Simulated assay, not measured.
Amino acid sequence: MRREAADYTHFQYISPLWCPTPTLVTIHDLLFLEPEFKAHFPWTYRWLNGLLFRLSAQKAKILCTVSAYGQNQLSRRYGIDSQKIVITPNAVSAQQMSLDKAKKRVSGYALDRFILFVSRVEPRKNHKALWRAFETLALHKQGFKLVFIGKKEWMDPDLEAVMQQSDPSLLEAVIWLDSVPHEDLWAFYRAAALFVYPSLGEGFGIPPLEAAAVGTPVVCARNTAMVDFEFFPYLVDLNQPESLEKAMNAALNDPEYPAQQIAEAIQNQYNWSASAKSLAQAIEQSN
């Protein structure tokens, strides 16, 4: 870094204790410090990263995060003026394809009509809520499959209990895929009848934006960073009884779902040019 005479060095989350250049640090969120999410992170992770994230944030010449939620967390937890924390949102670069091409591609997985959730499996992602909603609406009896794409990193005991109590016909309608090729993922997004994201908390929340960017209806939880996704007509409070089921049913039967308007809003709000402009402005102001 010294040889290259860099003006700044960028680090994700943690910067070294000593750096020959000013540091630019991006910290996406501090979910592991919030009481409602602590149980989802090992105590060693919370202790070590709690210390290193704080040091990195407080030493940074420029501190960035990806959402207003993250900005509020960093300001509140680390005592940093929110005006000094730059929001540089993640961007969505959708791979567009026709619906016919997408359906043909996913037909190789023996799929036709399906509900999709893309996320690694862990308790915070709340797969069990979608499983229950799918079962309550009896969508498997209407010819739908439920597709989960993501590695089973930390299986939720509550989800396992729900699965064990499910009817065999429902179990046959649920498809688990650890991973799929990149182009297949975009085909899944495009071909899904509905994308559902019931996560209990996110520092940002890329998957629902990716699904919506290709024109697929989305039902998304309204919490943490995802409260910013106001363009979704079905943004649900998971604390309200049957809210997920009601939203899914409405979205599946909404002939006027504004898919094109939502895709355009995402493209306008979440693109790398806008984030780069925010970062460039912060660098200019810091000099």
Rank of each mutant, 00 (worst) to 15 (best):
D7P: 04
D7A: 15
Q12R: 15
W18Y: 15
H28V: 13
L52G: 13
S56K: 07
S56C: 09
A57R: 13
I62S: 01
N72Q: 10
N72I: 04
Q73G: 00
Q73I: 03
S75C: 08
Y78C: 02
I85H: 00
K104W: 08
R105T: 13
G108T: 09
Y109W: 14
F114G: 11
I115S: 01
F117T: 04
S119Q: 04
H127A: 03
A129M: 01
R132W: 01
F134S: 07
E153Q: 14
A161E: 13
V162L: 09
M163G: 10
Q164T: 12
P168W: 12
P168Q: 06
S169D: 12
L170G: 04
L170V: 11
E172Y: 05
V180Y: 06
P181W: 01
F188G: 07
F188I: 05
A192Q: 02
F195N: 07
F195P: 03
E210R: 04
G215M: 02
V218C: 05
C220E: 00
C220W: 00
A221W: 06
M226P: 06
D228L: 09
P241D: 14
S243G: 12
M248C: 07
N249T: 07
L252E: 10
P255R: 08
P255F: 12
A259K: 15
A263P: 11
Y270G: 04
I283F: 15
I283D: 11
N287Q: 15
